[in-house]
Design a protein around this nucleic acid. Structure first.
Lengths: 191, 191
DNA sequence: ACCTGAACACCGTTCAAGT
DNA sequence: ACCTGAACACCGTTCAAGT
């Protein structure tokens, strides 16, 4: 019977918190402002999440789950692994297009020292999911030796994260595109 | 006559603030804790800096000035530009060795949305100084076409910043070294 | 179940007051 | 010149109280 009453508030909190953390980070996330976005009071957030830290962990968890689902879908829809890999940088481009935000995991990774263990783990999961996907695709593409697929996947992931960080700090999407193009030209993304 | 009385406090504040921002960022910088590190009260900081924002700008300014001076010294001491470029990743490795900290400019770049214009400018200056140096060295080395030196310099800078961010979030210097090695293997740092 | 106002300790900041 | 205690508005958090 009954009872999904608070699901709307919970969902709204998670979504608004995600956007806020992508712009201001965990330390910059303000519960009173967040509550106002959702249309409730700050104290009410505690009915859905026991603390700001656990809210952040929940947001980070959903973030990598969504990322993982998207990447699997991309792989399922795009037959060619090379084409799939070519499109990977797009995923980090959207955050820049959407209000000059950045990857929630990159931001929270930067704030590692101020995060509880659970939140840090979810941040690591995002990186692991992305690296595993890249590694699998590189392996499928078959253009570099199998032993180099995982190191290369990590290199691509960290380089893309860096490009997003730099481009965002200048509010310059064209710079992001230029950096990705340079990575290709230099061989990092060449397949 | 007289008067360098407050230079010691001012210097101590700048140094302690630098370390704190490298670990916790601008939003994570706590003036009461900072004052305690220096041995004064939080209110006293305002005798040396008009606000937390202007303190951060002063810290960021000194940060890129020191970086610039170091890079010029490295270039003066190391005849070979290729050797010079090979040693560039070391500069980002030190922060990891020194308490798993990160580049102050990368951290503040991440927090761009919450910084005043002056602080953002100093953060951009750091990137500009590093990119200009890399571009000059790439040009001296002569192994890539002149027109590609600056784009490549930007790519190297953002990739190194990304590697530091990822490695720090795992407190794993070996990962930083592996990422740099992968960049070399992939051709990004090859000369 | 879900939400709130009032209170707590903490933060950036100001200011009058100390030396 | 340099520093401080006390106060301000703000923040994360708690809790008793509302529906």
């Amino acid at each position: 019977v009954t009872a999904l009453g608070n699901l709307n508030s919970r969902e709204a909190i998670l979504n608004a918190a995600k956007e806020a953390v992508q712009a201001h980070g965990y330390n910059g996330l303000n519960l009173r402002d967040l509550a106002q976005d959702v249309g409730i009071k700050a104290a009410s957030i505690y009915h859905h999440f026991p603390s700001k830290a656990e809210l952040a962990a929940a947001v980070a968890r959903r973030y990598w789950e969504d990322s993982s689902a998207y990447l699997e879908r991309l792989l399922a829809e795009t037959a060619d692994p090379v084409e799939c890999l070519r499109r990977y940088p797009e995923t980090f481009r959207w955050a820049l297009e959407n209000g000059n935000r950045m990857c929630l995991s990159s931001f929270m990774a930067t704030e590692s020292d101020d995060l509880p263990e659970q939140a840090k783990q979810e941040v690591r999961n995002f990186a692991d999911v992305n690296v595993a996907w890249l590694s699998k695709l590189l392996s499928m593409a078959g253009s570099i030796p199998p032993a180099e697929c995982e190191p290369r996947a990590r290199a691509i992931y960290s380089a893309i994260a860096g490009a997003q960080l730099i481009a965002r700090s200048r509010s310059d999407i064209a710079l992001y595109d230029e950096l990705v193009e340079s990575y290709r030209a230099a061989g990092l993304l060449r397949l």
